[in-house]
């Protein structure tokens, strides 16, 4: 899948497209391989935008097209293919399973396609400073640690686009740097696109586009 296009997309909670928004009510295309930063204040709809693209919510008007396929014609069963092979998403709420260990949370994603070997997963956990947290229940980890687990989990699948929703909100600069380089490495190896939503932070990625929501 080489592109994701938004045509006149407007969330149902907005009656008219805000004049200042560079995304709502416009025609925009995100191309594979390009890094895009979307910034906005709280409540402007950053998470909504990513949820719409990921098919988690549909309370909007307009059209989203994946490659050549408009969202309307995507049947329910193809969503699983889209979510396991083409688009990966680090949710703002993380959506980890608190009863599973940190490692199990990653493996439950990885076993869908078998993208990474156990050694590769261990290496990523080591790099993210979570080597000793592998067998810890996710619910007992700090939010910052959970964020890193969620990012590693998102990297354990093939993807053309990586969606990040305020992914480093609870990380210190050192950890942001480590996790960013992990992400950068995976993006480059896949030639994938990045769509990062933040409150204004730009982090260290070399963006091709910067939109204000």
């Amino acid at each position: 899948m080489n592109s994701i296009s938004l045509n006149n997309v407007l969330p149902s909670f907005l009656s008219d497209a805000p004049v200042a928004s560079e995304i709502w009510g416009r025609d925009i295309a995100f191309a594979k391989g390009e890094y895009v930063l979307v910034t906005a204040v709280s409540g402007a709809g950053k998470s909504s935008l990513l949820s719409y693209i990921f098919g988690e919510r549909c309370d909007f008007s307009g059209t989203i097209t994946y490659g050549q396929q408009p969202l309307e014609v995507i049947k329910a069963k193809y969503w699983s293919q889209l979510r396991s092979r083409h688009i990966s998403y680090v949710f703002q709420g993380l959506r980890l399973f608190s009863d599973l260990t940190a490692l199990e949370n990653i493996l439950i994603k990885n076993r869908l396609i078998g993208q990474k070997t156990a050694a590769e997963i261990y290496a990523m956990l080591d790099a993210a400073g979570l080597a000793d947290k592998k067998q810890e229940k996710a619910g007992r980890l700090s939010f910052g640690q959970q964020q890193r687990i969620a990012v590693i989990r998102a990297l354990c699948q093939p993807f053309d686009f990586l969606l990040l929703d305020e992914p480093f909100s609870h990380l210190d600069d050192a950890n942001i740097s480590i996790v960013s380089s992990l992400i950068e490495q995976e993006l480059r190896s896949r030639g994938a696109g990045l769509l990062l939503c933040s409150l204004g932070q730009e982090y260290s990625f070399n963006y091709h586009h910067h939109f204000k929501l």
């Binding site: 969503w79 699983s80 979510r83 396991s84 092979r85 439950i108 994603k109 869908l112």
Partner: peptide, 15 residues
């Protein structure tokens, strides 16, 4: 909630 999250991870409903 668990089933919903698994679907968002890419699991099919049949699975």
């Amino acid at each position: 909630k668990t089933l919903g999250n698994l679907i968002l991870l890419g699991y099919t409903r049949n699975h």
